[in-house]
Nucleic acid binder design. Structure first.
Lengths: 347, 347
DNA sequence: GTGAAAGCGCTAACAC
DNA sequence: GTGTTAGCGCTTTCAC
């Protein structure tokens, strides 16, 4: 509210006050190399510009240079999501480092809105577009035809670069953490594995692969939704009907949370009776008691890489455009894993 | 990566193809009232524009109109924060509704970065600036001199509009929830109250006020940091050394989480033995067992109001510029409050 | 070493 | 009803 925009100082104003032409001022301010401006003139222009509080008009400059130093980030609802923020933050920080600004928009998963947003972004001549989803995996692309577009945390049928978490590798990490502690038997996967949900599918595959290579295998699956409540119910049922598992691989921290509650209610101790490992490494992992060993989602890095790609300055990327770029998921070891209680004989 | 920007269709291209002047096209496309364009011409222009995929160049338009339809949102690290996302989301959604785009930047609390960002935003002629913090409260303002600036979740010494959560009212809500259930005695506040941290200070004041009006009072304070671990320790200590409290008012959900753990370890049941009420209404509140009654942080609304203010279209706001605008914190009743076990005699 | 001037794509006053 | 044209503030070629 209150007073409106202040009158802007133009290049011409600075030029007049400094007693030179706009060209000179432009050259000085843009530090144009080889434009032999005398040191005195240079200093004078600089001083006057500062005194007058000159600030270049980005619209005018963009109109002229065809460059906006702006990247558009369209997401379905990333900002909303708890973990998703890191995706944005990585992109934000990196864009800033490279002197770009990020325009963040959310489509709320509405294709119509999304189309409109793309239009708007294109009209603003953004230098690049990042298309992100929180759900990972997904296909429908709005009618984007912008030279520099990258997919963040999703894929499409179009030949576009995509930045994804290496969920398969993450699955291996989780299994290996258990294997390192000596676990071979009584390992259960807790969560919901479907073919359509990439993270779950890949994590599962990674787990089975790593376990298999060590001559071990999953004892079973405890199916539940991605929420604590559902996990609590499923794990409780499992505990009451069968022999207690020795280790739980939970498909995310919220599921692990539910499992913790169920384990506690059943009088089982973590990690003494049951080891638990999980995915996402959300804040929850540090809040649980004992703190939860979790395989981290590399969202910050993914955001960073997306911007680097869209800006065309990612080396690793340069020789493999139009491809999936997998970002490692490191395991964060905490206190929820211990050696199996009754020393299980290695298979 | 891959191919670069596509050649753009200009207004002139559309005009030529449609066999009219640019003025006509401009008038048609901008739906300028009272510019008697014949229906045939209008339709033809519209059709041609669509066929050619015309999209106005925002830079050129802004240069001409002095309006960018863009709002800059500078935060210290809101995007990062778990709850903070809603602040952005509210702003994002509202900006979109009013056909504006949001440029989100984070200063990471670095004043130097912040200054730079403000410069950049101003250079881009944003129509307004929203300055947000996640910590609430704070004073130092970068050298902003933009007509339309509002403070979101913070205040300053400058005479700028500020959108804040009504933490005092929220404190009353929390206390009232307990009072309604019949609690009068054995009520403890869990958390860290200091004069410098507005949310804690105001919540505390609200609690005491509401309690006082009902002839009750806080039995004591259980001091701890804002994290589960710290809360767990503090509450555990309290439980082992003194009579068990009948109700806990936790200064946020994370503290409540720690309290839940401590209560469980002490064999106390929620809400039968001890009632718990908290603040923030984060996802955690729904994950806890029993689900936690919590006073919600109205972040989405705050973001919305900030944009409406900066755009100058908030009625409630219009007649009270340069003032603090408090947004109500509604209590979300769940299962963590019950009548006190041993019927306490009303004071 | 410095300046004049063209032009980026658009809007809008003014002319016809 | 429709077209001509002047600029918005900047970069940059070319001339001096």
């Amino acid at each position: 509210m209150t007073r409106d925009r202040l009158p802007r100082v133009r290049l011409r104003d600075v030029a007049e006050r400094a007693g030179v032409s706009v060209t000179t001022v432009s050259f000085v301010l843009n530090e144009r190399p080889g434009s032999g401006i005398s040191v005195e003139t240079r200093d004078r222009v600089l001083r006057v510009a500062r005194e007058m509080g000159y600030r270049p008009n980005a619209a005018a400059r963009s109109l002229r240079t065809q460059v906006t130093n702006t990247i558009g980030l369209i997401s379905d609802q990333i900002v909303t999501d708890n973990y998703g923020g890191d995706l944005i933050r990585g992109a934000l920080a990196t864009a800033l480092q490279h002197d770009h600004l990020l325009i963040v928009v959310e489509s709320q998963d509405d294709p119509e809105v999304e189309r409109h947003l793309v239009e708007d972004l294109l009209a603003r001549q953004v230098d690049g577009i990042i298309l992100a989803t929180i759900t990972s995996d997904r296909i429908q692309l709005p009618g984007i035809r912008h030279g520099r577009t990258v997919l963040l945390n999703c894929t499409s049928s179009h030949a576009l670069p995509a930045i994804l978490a290496d969920e398969l590798g993450g699955g291996r990490e989780a299994a290996n953490a258990l294997l390192r502690a000596g676990h071979r038997h009584g390992i259960f996967l807790v969560g919901e594995v479907t073919d359509t949900l990439r993270p779950a599918r890949e994590r599962h595959r990674g787990v089975t692969a790593a376990l298999g290579e060590a001559g071990a295998e999953l004892e079973g699956m405890i199916g539940c939704r991605w929420w604590p409540e559902s996990a609590y119910d499923a794990v409780s049922t499992q505990l009451s009907s069968r022999e207690a598992p020795r280790a739980l691989i939970c498909l995310n921290d919220r599921v692990a949370f539910g499992a913790y509650q169920a384990l506690a209610d059943a009088g089982l101790r973590i990690p003494d009776d049951v080891s638990v490992v999980s995915f996402d490494d959300s804040e929850l992992a540090r809040w649980l008691r004992p703190q939860l060993t979790s395989v981290a989602l590399p969202y910050f890095d993914m955001g960073r890489i997306a911007v680097e790609s869209v800006l065309g300055l990612s080396q690793e990327w340069a020789h493999a455009p139009d491809q999936e770029h997998l970002v490692a998921m490191p395991v964060r070891e905490r206190g929820s894993i211990a050696a199996p209680r009754s020393g299980a004989a290695p298979a």
